[in-house]
């Protein structure tokens, strides 16, 4: 793969929950308005998802709940095992081997060294009973950084970047507000300087002023550090602000992909039109 510009390439990624049958793919999808196979009851969360992500680019993923947005990033972060398909990460083995089929030890290495993930719910991304500094240290330790002073220094730097007052460094996230937890999560995800950051509904449930802070942070990270990101959101305002290109998912399929302004102003697929015209 052309590693000069590409950072991630995903081919025909599929994810099924259930044992599956030969009819699953035919009987689900946007045209059936369902992702549950009527024959065997298998949920087809994702089917034939292919896309590319370029260096420094932010790719948006939108769609209704249950369309497979979170499953997609979780498959890429190995939280879930993809049923089928390939993903190539430029910085791993020069983009020559399929990371989805890599052995567990390699997967752990990729997760710890090359990716960062921010979950919608900070309970998944943070240990709430371990201090903020400790959470960041955990990510750094798994990325082979063992020097205490350096870990402390990096923790301070990251909390500064995410505008968390330093006296919260030794405070447990469970005592922080939702918006702060989210920013500690971003700090943790960034700790290993990942070339790829996955953001799953990071601003959902935050009040608008905190949401603005988190969005500004993401934007500045992309500008200053040139990190590539996949941003999952059902807030089209967030997508418009952050992304250059957007994928629209429906019942586990890509129904539209294109430039963000094109998807928002001239959507082609019926569902994409419905989504855009539902905007307040």
């Amino acid at each position: 793969m052309d590693c000069d510009k590409l950072i991630l390439k995903v081919n025909n990624l599929s994810k099924k929950f259930g044992k599956g049958c030969s009819q699953c793919e035919k009987l689900t999808g946007p045209e059936h308005n369902s992702n549950v196979c009527p024959k065997c009851g298998t949920v087809v969360a994702l089917q034939d998802i292919s896309f590319e992500l370029y260096q420094g680019e932010i790719l948006g993923i939108v769609g209704e709940s249950g369309s497979g947005k979170s499953s997609l990033v979780q498959c890429l972060y190995f939280d879930q095992e993809a049923s089928h398909g390939e993903a190539y990460l430029c910085c791993f083995d020069n983009g020559l081997s399929n990371i989805l089929k890599a052995p567990e030890s390699k997967k752990r290495f990729i997760r710890n060294h090359m990716m960062g993930m921010v979950y919608q719910n900070s309970v998944r991304g943070l240990r709430l009973n371990v201090t903020s500094g400790g959470n960041i240290a955990e990510k750094l330790l798994s990325a082979d950084m063992f020097h205490f002073e350096s870990i402390r220094a990096r923790g301070k730097e990251l909390l500064g970047k995410t505008e968390i007052p330093l006296y919260y460094m030794d405070e447990m996230p469970k005592r922080l507000s939702g918006g702060m937890q989210q920013r500690v999560q971003i700090a943790k995800a960034l700790a290993n300087n990942p070339p790829l950051l996955l953001l799953d509904e990071v601003t959902t449930g935050l009040d608008v002023s905190v949401q603005a802070k988190v969005l500004d942070l993401i934007k500045s990270l992309q500008q200053d550090l040139n990190i590539s990101m996949i941003v999952v959101s059902h807030d089209l305002g967030v997508i418009r602000l952050l992304t250059n290109r957007t994928i629209v998912l429906k019942n586990g399929r890509i129904v539209e992909k294109g430039l963000t302004d094109q998807v928002l102003e001239d959507p082609q697929h019926a569902y994409a039109q419905l989504l855009v015209h539902s905007m307040l």
């Binding site: 294109g258 430039l259 302004d261 094109q262 102003e265 001239d266 082609q268």
Partner: peptide, 9 residues
Amino acid sequence: LKCIYRTYL
């Protein structure tokens, strides 16, 4: 104009 800029397809 939007077609040339590709905001419209």
